[in-house]
Simulated assay, not measured.
Amino acid sequence: MDVDLDGLFSLNGSYDYDENYEYKDDFDHRHANAAWIHIWFSLLTVLGLLGNGLLMAALGLKRKSTWTVSDAFVFNQGIADILLLVTLPFWAAQASQACGWCFAGVLCRINGAVFNLNFFCGVLLLVCICLDRCISIVHDRVLLSAKKPKLTLICCVVVWGLSLVLSIPDWLFNADFKEPPPAKTLCIFRHPRKSVHWLKFSRICHHMLGFVLPAATLIVCCSWVLLQLNRSVKGFQKHRYFVTVTTLVVAFLLCWVPYNVALMVDTSRSERKADSTSGGSLEVALLVTSAIGCVHACLRPVLYLVLSSNFRNWCISMLRCTTADAEGSLCELGVGCDARADRSQEQQQQQQEEEQRVPMTDCVADQQQQVPSAPC
């Protein structure tokens, strides 16, 4: 039997793999980034609205006559956090949609401004809390009190006004930028080449008034109060309030310091670029650090739940469908009239100790009178 192998060995053509073969990467980094951004912001929105909603409900159901200065500051911080959380779904939609930013340009400006508005309100209100605590503990004076609500109102109005002024650059330079056809529309911070000096001035104000000076004030106040408390033997309430405020300060710095450091690097590079849009690793750093900063809006209610017994008892009573009205500050920051209550508790403790000493001295005197005198 003859086997014809001519057809098998007659294929002498060569195949150029380098020219005709096209390798397609199955893993697209842009899609991966869009996926984790969408999941992250969606999770922060749900958890943050639940936590801040519970905190605002506790303050809203509390009687206005029992509100303290601490409650007023926490209420304003909650408003700023809720405003930020409402804007997160827009950023998640930009990352997940094929068209990118599919909303109006006005929403782009609002979202960018609200992001910095939350940051400025948070740090400035925290500075007010730390300054009042520092003065009340170190100098034994009360600046803010529930008996003078106008002063507290003025502080809150000044904080919101200064935050709005510092957020003006975001209203001016945030816009929906359309990239070349393969890419998509993005809502970014972009300025024209002629306004580089204005950008530099606004960034310096942002770094100094929003980060460097407030952070230095928070660290100095906490260190000063800690030294004062270490010298004093008594004052358990002051130590407890100090732990609460210090924990809030540390949480704020951990969430927002990375973003501000990345923004400082972007500011130094923007002086040598035609626009302020970052690229490469710096763009990823700004994205990741801003996502970390948004965690603070969800973390603060959790810290109040762990550190504040009044807020924890209110939540437990609400789950049990019972009514409970917290005495004093709901979040126990020790600001304003809380400091007076703190000192009154210390005075009561001192009076009790003095009352316990008085009977002991009387007993000693009676024993001395009962001892017969020696005969002459």
Score class of each variant (00 low, 15 high):
Ile79Val: 14
Asn52Lys: 03
Arg193Leu: 10
Ala285Cys: 04
Asn12Phe: 04
Ile137Phe: 01
Lys148His: 08
Gln356Ile: 01
Ser268Val: 14
Val74Ser: 06
Leu172His: 07
Asp2Phe: 04
Asn111Tyr: 04
Leu117Asn: 03
Val306Trp: 06
Asn111Met: 14
Asn230Trp: 10
Leu153Trp: 08
Asn118Tyr: 10
Gly235Phe: 00
Cys99Val: 11
Lys273Gly: 08
Glu327Pro: 11
Val212Cys: 10
His296Phe: 12
Glu22Pro: 08
Phe252Gln: 05
Thr68Val: 02
Arg203Ala: 15
Phe236Ile: 11
Val295Ile: 13
Asp266Met: 12
Thr267Ile: 02
Thr247Asn: 10
Glu179Cys: 08
Thr66Glu: 11
Leu125Gln: 05
Lys234Ile: 10
Val159Gln: 00
Thr323Leu: 14
Ala374Asn: 12
Lys238Gln: 15
Leu49Asp: 02
Leu8Ser: 09
Val225Leu: 02
His197Asp: 14
Asp2Ala: 12
Leu49Pro: 01
Ser308Lys: 00
Ala183Asn: 12
Ser136Trp: 00
Gly334Cys: 02
Ser329Arg: 00
Tyr304Pro: 10
Leu303Val: 03
His206Pro: 10
Gly7Val: 09
Leu166Gln: 03
Trp91Asn: 07
Lys200Thr: 14
His207Cys: 12
Ser14Asp: 15
Leu5Glu: 06
Pro149Lys: 01
Leu319Ser: 10
Cys130Val: 03
Ser70Ala: 01
His206Val: 13
Asn310Lys: 05
Ala57Arg: 11
Leu88Gly: 02
Lys147Ser: 15
Met208Thr: 12
Gln77Tyr: 09
Trp224Ala: 08
Pro375Lys: 01
Gly235Cys: 01
Asp6Asn: 14
Phe311Leu: 05
Ser278Cys: 06
Glu327Ile: 09
Asp170Glu: 12
Leu253Ser: 02
Leu59His: 00
Pro375Phe: 04
Ser317Arg: 08
Pro372Ala: 06
Leu117Ile: 07
Met264Phe: 08
Gly328Pro: 01
Asp25Glu: 12
Arg231Lys: 09
Ser308Val: 02
Gln97Ile: 09
Leu61Gln: 12
Asp6Leu: 13
Val158Asp: 01
His29Ser: 15
Arg312Cys: 14
Trp171Tyr: 11
Leu151Glu: 09
His139Pro: 08
Leu88His: 00
Leu226Ala: 06
